[in-house]
Design a protein around this nucleic acid. Structure first.
Lengths: 190, 190
DNA sequence: GTGAGCATGTAACTCGTTACATGATTCT
DNA sequence: AGAATCATGTAACGAGTTACATGCTCAC
């Protein structure tokens, strides 16, 4: 049982899904592809934590709808109270910062443009995700009993993180532009 | 040349360092251990991007001080203007959120306690790192020419991210505590 | 007709982690 | 006496990515 396996049963606790659905859902906060997910689902099924129902389709490929078993539900509870391992973050961007002081101003500006574009794209994604959620959910999203609750609070955090990222870009730019002149502190620091 | 290799030459562009130093420095924004770094350093040396000077020590083990070659410097420039690959984030915590709605209130509270402890620990780390930087650097840290500039802006961002994380925890708690009563929106949403 | 979406699966490969290996000094 | 720091390295393993493989429908 690796972390991704627990992630799969955790997502399945919100509702039964196919491996394809899980792949789409999981990508927002855990990089992985279907090639990693399908074998793990089979393993979970063998171990009895999940079961699946095969559904024939005629216009689309047949699919397997996975859901949690009682044994899987039990495992979920044990995992939830176990220690959470620290996050793994690997961002090439942060490496580029280390040599920024050696690069020409126009190159740094282009780099910051790219970073901002990246953040803005993410922002749109999250906004859309929240819209979709509020359409699908009958209850308020701020209902702690709703199956969307986890996704909702997670997306809110991610959204605020990218907004912070955009503020940070502005702040870095301001230092950069004023490097020979006086400093204008745009209040990024707290 | 993988991303970590570029990270190594980027860090070496700030000052010559040993593999041991690089390991310590890199850990703040890229999970990896010395076992991954030493072989890559040898490879970079073989390819002529870095060179090292062996330094004998008597109280401590001998060490190899690595620095960038002209060829390495050229590569650094090419890499800096190349497209930055998107960040990889894997946080077990985000998986736990998905099944939060099924867990008892006290378990959720304990989970949030753990998350907060984690953020607070990080906050202390970053504060200390900033202190050390300002002691070591002769110039102002907000000098875009300083070799500490990259580390400084990166640490500021990381620090603001954990502060945001702590606010987020409070917000989630507030929803949780008031689930049967009326909602108190603590203004986390923007 | 070309690409995107739906849907599942395997094989080879790359990258990172854990464990093994060594050894002196310093702090608790 | 035991743990932490400094300092380098290799081997086995685990996890994730890229590429291979198939095939039908719908929109542009």
């Amino acid at each position: 049982m690796n972390k991704l396996s627990y992630g799969l049963i955790s997502l399945l606790s919100t509702k039964p899904m196919t491996g394809y659905d899980l792949t789409l859902r999981i990508n927002r906060f855990w990089q992985s592809t279907h090639s990693a997910i399908y074998p793990l689902l089979s393993e979970l099924e063998e171990k009895g934590y999940v079961k699946f129902e095969e559904k024939k389709q005629f216009d689309k490929p047949d699919k397997k709808i996975y859901s949690l078993t009682d044994k899987g539900m039990e495992l979920l509870g044990e995992w939830f109270i176990s220690e959470t391992s620290p996050p793994v973050v690997r961002d090439e961007m942060s490496f580029k910062l280390s040599c920024m002081h050696l690069m020409d101003d126009d190159l740094v500006e282009k780099f910051l443009d790219e970073v901002e574009r990246r953040y803005n794209k993410k922002l749109e994604e999250y906004k859309k995700a929240l819209e979709v959620m509020s359409l699908k959910s009958r209850e308020s999203l701020e209902d702690a009993f709703s199956t969307y609750f986890g996704a909702y609070v997670l997306t809110q955090r991610a959204m605020n993180e990218v907004i912070l990222g955009l503020e940070w870009c502005k702040w870095v730019r301001s230092i950069y532009k004023n490097k020979q002149f006086q400093l204008i502190n745009q209040n990024f620091k707290r």
